[in-house]
Amino acid sequence: MSNIPEDLRYSEEHEWIRPASNHVTIGVTDHAQEQLGDVVFVELPEVGDEITRGAEFGAIESTKAYSELFAPVTGEVTEVNDSLIDAPEMLNKDPYGDGWMIRIAPAEESDIDDLMDAEAYREHIENEK
């Protein structure tokens, strides 16, 4: 069973969201990286870009396939994890830590409230099987 930290929020597209005082950090879940296999390329937006909840904001390439990334919340990108360009495997090795993808300043606080908690996400994975 994959690792699902209790203190995070989750989207149906298998992203995790870590809220902080004025920004949220976004990454992909352990379950997602297991399904993807070896990640070899990550395409992310640039600082200052606006991303919109439900719209595509980037993509992940693994040796098997490519998967688009859909924004779990709306907001402006404030920081991007550039180390993933040269070390995309961090996304497999440490999905909740060094494998984080972007930080954004959310436009709507309510977006976060709509996300799943750990238990709901666990159920979501079960239902997908």
Binding site: G37, D38, V40, T63, K64, E89, N92
Partner: peptide, 10 residues
């Protein structure tokens, strides 16, 4: 087998 636990890259 598509890959073993070490993964395709390794």
């Amino acid at each position: 087998p598509i890959s073993y636990p070490n993964g395709t890259v390794e």
